[in-house]
Design a protein around this nucleic acid. Structure first.
Lengths: 338, 338
DNA sequence: CTGAAAGCGCTAACAT
DNA sequence: ATGTTAGCGCTTTCAG
């Protein structure tokens, strides 16, 4: 083992408690004493044994961010910010890959990490309100992004209906009438897809456009390949769409690819919009119009809330926070004025 | 606090040691005893307190994967695999973002995480052999991917010179003569860029093509934007290149974008190759020819080696492992036979 | 095969 | 302002 508090105490000729206080700054320490201790710390190269500290404090200093796929740029960007924020607050963030697997989400919710982590940030995709309500684990839980509402936990997300609505509105504004949606899911259980479809329907209705179920493409997942396949199917329709709204940027990029392969021009023949504002969409050809959530806000807020709960602070404000989003217009829907 | 060993011991009417043995399986336990203990464990829902275990064992069960950017799809893919592998071996992997910062790399190397982690997997970009050699920390270290050779640590990487060589060879094979490289770095300190330039030069020489320093573009970093800017500069040259090899796929995708904006056709006017085989390159327009490293092999091997060292196993085999790679031909260099 | 007990390093309550 | 000490939950000798 390395250098311990005891070694420092001996070296500096003070008690363990004093060293601890110098290190943690909990109680005031005389200036001369502090200096001696500090010197010993520096000379011996002391750093606290975290396992011991955690054992004593009953906390581990670890929080988990559980997401359906690390590989998804949206979540990677989110994770990067969250890791930094957590580190700044003295916590280590570990990533947990649920792989969009219901069992994995349930296990996490049920406390599979009970003794490893002090709190959990979860992006649920396969579980719903019921599962969250019947959770027994007592570590703080913050939900992000999707689909579970009205539960006694902090929840941070964009307004999916409004975001979807805004995207469709934009497509309508540039004169499109046959607007498809890619990324609906069978069963109503995956809420965020459901909400985005709702926003889609509402916006169509508001524009006086008919809702055609054939233009709503289901996908198993929300990756590039899913978007590509769905777009291919849509193009095979008798009267294909003149615009497509993807569940997220990845799906939209897949659609872009299918359109390119089929020889359609974007945006002239088909306009495309996504959600997430991943960097990839700023460099694709054409660049991708998207609904940009405030990832920094989501990630930082989630981490801060969680840590506040862990530390028992009275956190004011509503449990559910809707973070802002904005439409970023790029080539896939034509340049402004075009 | 939750249920502890003591609770189980009382419930089952046995000693602490026996419960511990049932839980860990270190020493044989009588069948009847084991059953009683197991029942108590199940009934009370016991799971061991990891902080206590770690304090006692002198290990934390955590390993870190330190990479220059989480956001880079290559590293995200690597991380996802590594996390899974570590979990399977009973470890939790935490991600550490060095942000390609020399200070951050040095701190990690020096043991800033000393008491948090049992071992470190590091992808160095700003430090070299000297720094690694003069490291004092005693936790196991595995280097991945880049630039530091001949140090007494496990090191897993592709053969950068050979990989680069293969890419250029392919460009030569499809008839290109003015081949540019994007992603060299000022100063020789970032080795992997250096190695890739070397492979580039060697392949040119082997093909009897002249080396023109104007065709080697430096970048500050290795992102899409860097590639785009460099490509733009290259196009401004009197006689622009007819092919470009990017330091990685991200850079190559940035180049693709610059070419599209400038109205050049790929691959007809300019062919493009990258390294990494990130999924993005399978959906870009055009799709991207690339050198694909075996990410699964790299990530799994790194984790396994590290854990083996942590657990003190005698690890056989060479310290340095070169993992295989292969060229994947896609649209950006023309379809086979084209 | 099972039990008793020491002690990992730290923090916090209690003394002084 | 500083010191003493109990004990967090676990693993691991050492005894039996």
């Amino acid at each position: 083992m390395g250098v311990s508090l005891k070694d420092i105490a001996e070296r500096a000729g003070v008690s363990l408690a004093t060293v601890s206080n110098v290190v943690n700054g909990y109680r005031p320490v005389g200036e001369r004493t502090r200096q001696r201790v500090q010197q010993a710390v520096d000379e011996l190269g002391y750093s606290p044994n975290l396992s011991a500290r955690h054992l004593r404090r009953g906390r581990t200093g670890l929080i988990a961010l559980a997401i359906p796929e690390l590989n998804n740029p949206y979540f990677a960007e989110l994770a990067e910010i969250a890791i930094t924020e957590a580190a700044g607050l003295g916590y280590t963030l570990v990533m947990e890959n649920t792989a969009a697997d219901r069992g994995a989400e349930l296990a996490l919710l049920g406390g599979s990490r009970r003794n490893t982590i002090d709190g959990l940030i979860l992006s649920p995709v396969r579980i719903g309100r019921q599962e969250v309500l019947s959770r027994t684990a007592d570590t703080p839980l913050v939900l992000i992004g999707e689909g579970v509402y009205d539960v006694p936990h902090d929840h941070i997300a964009i307004d999916n209906v409004a975001a979807s609505h805004a995207a469709i509105q934009h497509l309508v504004a540039i004169g499109r009438h046959r607007i498809a949606f890619i990324g609906a899911t069978p069963g109503g259980d995956r809420q965020s897809a459901h909400l985005r479809v709702r926003g889609y329907r509402e916006a169509l209705a508001a524009a006086g456009l008919p809702y055609r179920s054939r233009l709503v493409a289901r996908t198993d997942a929300f990756g590039r390949l899913d978007g590509k396949r769905a777009m291919r199917d849509l193009l095979a329709l008798g009267d294909p769409p003149d615009a497509v709204f993807g569940y997220n940027d990845l799906v939209a990029i897949g659609a872009l690819r299918a359109l390119a392969e089929a020889g359609h021009r974007v945006p002239e023949d088909v306009a495309v919009v996504g959600i997430d504002d991943i960097e990839e969409g700023r460099f694709s050809t054409p660049t991708l119009t998207t609904i940009a959530p405030d990832k920094g806000e989501i990630a930082r807020l989630a981490v801060r809330r969680l840590i506040a709960r862990i530390e028992g602070a009275e956190v004011a404000g509503p449990l559910t926070v809707q973070t802002p989003f904005r439409l970023i217009r790029r080539e896939s829907t034509g340049t402004p004025g075009g």
